[in-house]
Amino acid sequence: MALQELTYRDALRKALADAMTENPDVVILGEEVGRYGGAYGVTKDLIKEFGAERVIDTPISEPAIVGAAVGAAMTGLRPVAELMYVDFIGMTMDQLANQAAKIRYMFGGQIGVPMVLRTQGGTGRSAGAQHSQSLEAYVMHTPGLRLAMPATVADAYHLLRMALTKPDPVVFIEHKALYTMKETVDLDAEPLAWGKAAVRREGRDLVIVTYSRQLHYCLEAARQLSARGVEATVIDIRTLNPLDFDTIRAHVERTGRAMVVSEGVMTAGVAAELSARITEECFDFLEDPVVRVAGEDIPISVSTALEAGSVPGPQLIADTALRMLAGRVPA
């Protein structure tokens, strides 16, 4: 109904504010979330609106932030714990993977842990090896954890709102390079359901499966490819758990070619899992091997040149597609 121009950051903030208005049990806890307003400004001024007992500034204690959120979620609150950088997830892995993810199962279904762990990752700010990683595979490898990674402004809003209604723990990984991205959105429009992949572009020649910031690189590559006569379908999976494999399968069967694009390192990553599944389940339809275009198997450098070179970009994606389709495309 109402079109408005919003940044990804604004949309996230609005999702938190709307959820907090709607549900008095929603509380935020994390480092610098209150008076500072969040390291990337997502929680700016929420403390003024909702008070210090609902927007809780914590000491620098990542394990206990997540652990307190687990206990709060088990006793009637709807906590949103914030982990300033996904790179710190290793600090919290016991509370996340051994506690939050397994409590429903270990306790025979007596109770769930309806919490959201908001964090952000990825390259783009020359932040170095310990503040630039894409660690979603750690989460995706843990049964019991849901995982959402919004690529668009509308998804930043809707996926966060939906995450705050889910009965199980959701890890919500934003991309630091997207916070200032602006889009004109109608937040009243019916969103695509949680757990459904979005087909962002349709084309006959190949499918590119991706998520988070790489979606934009894939769409840029698809525009370049179109100019060369190659039409790509681009699928944004939005939630890595639950994973909408049906949409991927349908398009791979139609086009016969698939590329998976991820910023995370290639080895044993999300792209490896998606590639394996496509290969297994769409084998009879494939004209080419499924190709992974992923982060290099190296740490991220602070040098902007090395940083940019460490992860896929539009050129590598487009070049790879052209090679897959070699012989079918005029030189």
Binding site: L29, P63, A68, G71, G76, P79, Q110
Partner: peptide
């Protein structure tokens, strides 16, 4: 949950922070 037992734990110290969360809930 009926007796308020939020869980035994096989990770040494793993169950400790949950009481902070339960404390936040009680306050809220």
């Amino acid at each position: 949950m009926g007796l308020g037992h939020l869980g035994a734990n096989a990770i040494v110290g793993g169950g400790i922070p949950a009481v902070v969360g339960a404390g936040l809930s009680a306050r809220h």
